[in-house]
């Protein structure tokens, strides 16, 4: 059962990166859209993510619940030493969710208030994945110190370092990229679709640059990233698969395949996560000095893991079909309208 629970944990994290990421990305795209086209982008985006954003964010809750029920020590250490970035992330999630709901449901569509909501929405859409990435980066950067000499050493440098910040920026770029790819298929007309294609290409280039920066920053911080990724066949295969799918994706975009490219983009990001994840597995958080927190040794007692596994298993029978039906119902149907 432990493996089932771990599989669900990774599934929830990957899906949150993909779906939540695309969702944040929509705001990032809006942030980097010229004033002229903003209104149109906003409309497309609202239609595309309105019905599904709340469901997309549930993956985060599922991941957290699995962590604190199944791996309580890991959860409590993470919450202690990454308290500050988690706090920032939560504040931004709050700002973003409420701003999105308020701008759609404010009965008076005043210009000043709408502007305020838009501002909050786009900036928090940027900051949330930034900090999400920072948290993910910090988990593997070996900067978490269980016996810190000072407040700053224990609670600030645990996450404020080149590597974590580079991972944060990389996450932002990937989110924007995922969103642009998704929105291509939701655009109202060809002109719009073209704009999103352009955005997707930019975001992709930026993501590759930030990806490179992650490697450089890893060098600074003595994170053995290159060794992890290129040192074992699974991670290496995953990276190669991601690269091939990137090339295919560019070909498909120019052929105007709007839906199939989503699968390729999702696949690419999943492969990147797999490459990184596989190498440290079973370690979930890497600690300064080497006392890494392992999923295999710090799990809850077996009875709890069994019950949790069953709950997730049964839950997914209820959730997955209805979730697919939700996506299916609200994706743009060319025959309607």
């Amino acid at each position: 059962m432990l493996y089932v629970v771990i599989a669900f944990l990774f599934l929830a994290i990957v899906l949150y990166f993909l779906l939540g990421g695309a969702d944040f990305g929509a705001g990032i795209i809006e942030l980097f859209t010229s004033e002229k086209n903003r209104q149109q982008t906003r409309k497309t985006m609202y239609q595309a993510i309105g019905p599904i954003w709340e469901a997309n964010h549930m993956w985060l809750i599922i991941a957290v619940v699995i962590l604190f029920v199944g791996f309580p020590v890991i959860y409590s250490q993470m919450c202690t030493y990454l308290h500050i970035p988690l706090l920032v992330m939560l504040m931004e999630i709050t700002a973003r969710g409420t701003a999105f709901a308020f701008r759609s449901y404010d009965a008076v569509k005043g210009e000043r208030t709408q502007n305020l909501y838009n501002h909050i929405f786009v900036y928090s859409s940027f900051i949330t994945p930034l900090f999400l990435g920072i948290i993910a980066g910090s988990a593997i950067s070996r900067q978490i110190d269980l016996h810190p000499a000072s407040f700053v050493a224990g609670y600030i440098f645990s996450w404020l370092n080149y590597f974590s910040v580079a991972v944060g920026l990389f996450t932002v770029a990937l989110s924007g990229y995922l969103a642009a790819i998704y929105l291509i298929g939701e655009a109202d007309d060809d002109k719009d679709a073209k704009r999103f294609i352009k955005k997707a290409k930019y975001m992709n280039i930026i993501a590759v640059i930030f990806g490179g920066m992650v490697f450089i920053a890893a060098g600074f911080e003595n994170v053995r990233l290159a060794h992890w990724i290129f040192g074992n066949s699974v991670s290496l295969t995953a990276v190669i698969a991601a690269t091939i799918s990137l090339i295919l994706l560019w070909v498909l975009i120019s052929r105007g395949k709007k839906k199939i490219i989503r699968i390729f983009a999702g696949f690419q990001v999943t492969m990147i996560l797999l490459a990184v994840g596989y190498m440290h597995y079973p370690y979930f958080i890497m600690i300064k000095g080497g006392q890494n927190l392992s999923l295999m040794s710090l799990h809850a007692p077996n009875k709890t893991i069994d019950d949790l596994g069953w709950a997730l298993f049964i839950g997914s029978f209820l959730i997955l079909p209805s979730l697919f039906y939700l996506y299916y119902s609200f994706q743009k149907k060319n025959d309607v309208v």
């Binding site: 029920v69 309580p72 959860y75 019950d307 949790l308």
Partner: peptide
């Protein structure tokens, strides 16, 4: 300490 014990309702609640 409490997570593994009272976590059941939370996991079902997640669902």
């Amino acid at each position: 300490h409490a997570g593994p014990i009272f976590g059941m309702p939370f996991s079902l609640e997640g669902v």
